[in-house]
Design a binder for these strands. Structure first.
Lengths: 336, 336
DNA sequence: CTGATAAGCCGAACCGGTTAAGTAACGACG
DNA sequence: CGTCGTTACTTAACCGGTTCGGCTTATCAG
């Protein structure tokens, strides 16, 4: 067990602790010769700063927080989150920041977590995902003074800094695509309506449909495969039967595909399918799924960069990360 | 910004800091009356212990570490990890322990992370996943004196504490199942051979096949959907064509299913498919997939419990968590 | 040669807890 | 009544860094 401290380095170099601290932190106050000597000794002893000590005096924890208010089950099923976390990590690692990840059951527990973190000085800032319509977390974060970057549309962010992808544009692209193929009755299998992204897509869906003179229907789900399958069954057995379905995530699209096959129908001959979130799933089904693709790892990285900027004094602002790109695959074709 | 410290509580209660500390930590040395008063004031002020300060003096970080040496891409595709992390979290949350999660590219970076954590006193212990054959991490962890619980078979653990699921028994169950259906030529689409679990399953596969007089072949992959699909193509176009395929994860099984459909073959008429890791994927395909199911969330929780036990002085030992259960679904049937 | 300025370094306070050692008050007991 | 042991605290050191005021010494303008 090495327990190399700054004091030991000071002793060996024959200087004071303070001088060593300046040297190691690349701050003025020591000569280049001394600095070099200190750095060399530190390297020899394999010194690493004790995190707790640094946090205590510097009043920074060098940690960002991320709370996921979803069931463990959802987290398993949705490839989204792990990718996002991976992106966050990739940025944090090189700044030697840490990520405090907390999985909780609901928004109340999420709020409790923020309060606890703020009181404990546990994190320097948080990343807030799954933005809601009139999100109750925003006023709490404001009051706690906890720096935060929101993941979601500025329309939901109430002026707080956020990073978003343009769901409206993506929805337009998707509807333009199916309309241009000749589809006239389109269904949307959406996530829970309280989610801000879902709400925005709902709006965009109806608006674009009106523009293109399409007939529409929307089924709200909890994002799970089970409800995606159920919604698909409802849609397919309805009348007039839609000829295209747009899903809010790829898991439900894959589940829907299986239902359609099970009913003896064919994709894309009888139904055109479009998925949101283009993970590996969309490429391994038969037929492969047309999808709105975006780089989730990059998204997580971008959000983290913004949070780093924010705590070092950057102006809070909304930042458009990207617009999901429509990748056309075998699941879309003209209706027959 | 609340900055409630123990000193403030002491002032308000008219006692010393030390007394407050004893009271808050439920230790002897203060009267019940004083303790009650301190607790009440602490609650009123919404005091929470400053983590850094506590860590510094108590020399415990109340944090466990978990390094995932996989590409961000793999993490996205494999539902496994997020579920495992969720299980770990569920236990840590109630002990108010934190999880330091680090995603790195390879084993060398993983080792570097352990060294850094040990030097910084960053974590009290680590959870080690993806055990290898003759794993280079074990001697390093031993030397660093970092408490660790390994996730994997005792045969790979070199005497260190571990939690495992019985892959051999599961493989036997799978082969008994397909053999009893009448299959005689069985293929295995395995993960990378350097992974300990894969190695164990390889052994078990060959051994059970010999016992049951089956003809076998093994294709090693990197666990990805792409290589799972490629392996399936090889297998199906080989001769004599196997009539059953056992996959090392469900992602590859789903990818394989699509390949088989694409080649105009049918499951389960032409081929029986069995997947390892029973996530939602296995239930949303058509046909649904027979799978070796285990509770990954519970597995993560169990491992974490063991690590908590270990750092509080429990005897290190190997602990069998469970044996994956064979769930028979529509993808298995007698060969025709 | 003197006084001002700055570079380089030291000593010590400080961050917010934990904990060993010391003390005062009090009751029991020989 | 003196002694011993408890109980209930207080005091102060300590964890390992950061940071600030101040002390030397060298540098340089006047």
């Amino acid at each position: 067990m090495s327990r190399v401290t700054i004091k030991e380095i000071a002793r060996r170099c024959g200087v004071s602790q303070g001088a060593v601290s300046y040297a190691l932190n690349n701050r003025p106050g020591v000569s280049e010769a001394t600095r070099a000597r200190v750095l060399q000794v530190a390297a020899e002893l394999e010194w690493a700063p004790n995190r707790a000590a640094r946090q205590l005096s510097a009043a920074r924890s060098e940690t960002f927080g991320l709370v996921l208010a979803r069931s463990a089950q959802t987290l398993i099923e949705e490839p989204y989150f792990m990718g996002f976390v991976g992106g966050v990590e990739s940025v944090l690692a090189e700044k030697s920041y840490a990520l405090a990840l907390q999985v909780v059951a609901d928004l109340d527990e999420e709020l409790a977590t923020y309060r606890k973190w703020a009181a404990e000085r546990r994190v320097d800032g948080v990343i807030v995902v799954d933005l809601r319509v009139a999100d109750p977390r925003l006023p709490v974060l404001r009051k706690l003074g906890l720096p935060a970057v929101l993941v979601g549309d500025p329309a939901l962010a109430d002026g707080m800094p956020c990073v978003w992808t343009d769901g409206t544009a993506a929805m337009n692209a998707a509807l333009d695509h199916v309309a241009s193929l000749g589809h006239r009755v389109i269904a949307r299998v959406a996530g829970p309506p309280e989610y801000g992204d879902v709400w925005i897509r709902d709006q965009a869906f109806e608006l674009a449909a009106r523009r293109l003179s399409l007939e529409t229907r929307i089924h709200h789900t909890d994002y799970s495969a089970a409800q995606g399958a159920a919604a698909t069954r409802d849609i397919v057995t309805g009348s007039p039967r839609p000829t295209a379905i747009i899903y809010d995530n790829d898991l439900m699209a894959v589940a829907g595909l299986a239902v359609i096959h099970g009913l003896g129908l064919s994709v894309p001959d009888d139904l055109t399918l479009v998925a949101w979130d283009d993970s590996a799933l969309c490429r391994i089904t038969h037929p492969t799924l047309t999808a709105l693709s975006h780089n989730i790892v990059g998204y997580g990285a971008e959000v983290t960069q913004r949070l780093l900027g924010l705590i070092s004094g950057a102006q809070p602002q909304a930042h458009l990360y990207s617009t999901p790109l429509l990748i056309i695959r075998d699941s879309s074709a003209p209706p027959c």
